[in-house]
Amino acid sequence: MPEGDTVLQTAKRLHSALAGQVLTRSDLRVPRFATADLTGRTVLDVTARGKHLLTRIEGGLTLHSHLRMDGAWRIYAPDERWRGGPTHQIRAILANAAHTAVGYRLPVLELLRTRDEEKAVGHLGPDLLGPDWNADTALHRLLADPDRPLGEALLDQRNLAGIGNVYKCELCFLARATPWLPIGRLPGPTAVLLVSTAKQLLEANRDRPDRTTTIGARPRTAAAPAPRARRPSEKLWVYGRAHRPCLRCGTPVRVADQDTRPTYWCPHCQAGPTP
């Protein structure tokens, strides 16, 4: 599932290609909106809200989309071949004289009044990459259910918006806690640091083509030994590193499902319950 930084980059690309331009083609391939015609309207802007994309269009309309597990928006030049997937996976086409934006495998696609955007995204917590970011509110929401596993609380977009499975695993590693630890058992300073580190990581990666968490976000505990020297390919602390040595201690990283998502952790560096 794309994370907040990836969705923000997608929004920037769509904004660059569509904003300020008149649509010469629109095709929404979902039954509810199949007859909607946006041709002749100007795209005003494309904005990310957490993991949601809001394409605002002249006339008070917003096209709301969400990528979830494998959705994607691709942008093509007029004569460029479309390579995002087979035709039957296309859910949306928005084109102007210079660019065509094609949405593939979009599980959420709806056209709504701009004034009603809150119905689609109003449930979200503070956006880690948005102007509404508020660390105190995010911390309060995270700790509202102290018995909830840390990993599940981080993934709940109602607490703070933008964290996906990669950041969940990396943040738990940096907090030295397993994703199954009840969040209320985190020491207060660690919980505060967890929120600020989440903000730091997404901000650091908001413009990077390749996400990395091992540069500029080392584990911050006095007892933690200095990580060993890293190769450029070692961009993540634990995610995707099952059975490979932990970058801090050398213990093989483990993997198990948490709420159907593969979850990685170091059994030596991270304290707390495990499956």
Rank of each mutant, 00 (worst) to 15 (best):
L194Q: 11
R254N: 00
L128T: 03
A229I: 11
R231Q: 15
R241W: 07
R176P: 03
L160K: 01
E110L: 05
G240H: 14
E117H: 08
P209V: 02
L124F: 05
R220S: 12
L143A: 06
L194V: 04
W180L: 13
L160D: 05
R206Q: 14
L142T: 00
Q157S: 07
G164I: 11
L181R: 11
L193C: 11
R220M: 04
D136C: 06
V253I: 15
L155I: 06
A135S: 15
S233E: 14
P232L: 13
V121G: 01
T190A: 12
R254I: 00
L247R: 13
G188M: 00
A191K: 03
R206V: 05
P149Q: 07
L154C: 02
P149K: 07
N134T: 05
R231E: 12
D136A: 15
V195K: 01
D116I: 00
S233W: 09
D132H: 02
N165D: 12
A177S: 15
K168G: 04
L201M: 10
D210K: 14
L181K: 08
L150K: 06
A217E: 08
Q200H: 14
W237S: 07
E203Q: 15
E152M: 10
L143S: 07
V166P: 02
L181I: 08
A223H: 14
E152F: 01
E234V: 04
E203Y: 12
N205P: 09
W180G: 11
T213E: 13
T251D: 09
R230A: 03
T221V: 04
R206W: 00
A191N: 12
K235L: 11
R228N: 04
L109W: 09
G164E: 13
T251L: 01
L150F: 14
A222H: 09
D145I: 10
L124G: 05
A138W: 05
A120Y: 08
R185H: 15
A191L: 03
N165G: 01
L181N: 12
N165W: 04
G216Y: 06
R158T: 03
E234N: 07
G188V: 04
Q200G: 03
A120F: 10
A138E: 06
A217H: 14
A224P: 04
L139H: 10
R244K: 15
A153W: 06
G184A: 05
H123G: 14
K119Y: 07
E110V: 08
D116Y: 02
A177V: 08
P149I: 00
Y239S: 06
L160H: 06
L247I: 10
P179Q: 11
P219W: 03
V238H: 11
L112G: 13
L201Q: 06
A177R: 15
R115K: 13
E110Y: 00
D132Q: 06
D156A: 10
P219Q: 05
A177E: 14
R141V: 00
L174F: 04
R148V: 00
P182C: 06
E110W: 01
D127M: 13
R218Y: 08
G151K: 01
H123T: 02
R241Y: 02
G122A: 03
G125A: 02
S196K: 10
W180C: 10
T114P: 13
A222G: 00
A204G: 03
A191V: 02
W180A: 13
G122P: 10
G164T: 12
L139Q: 13
R248C: 15
T214I: 01
T251E: 14
K168E: 15
K235G: 01
P219E: 05
K168P: 01
P146E: 03
A226W: 04
D210L: 12
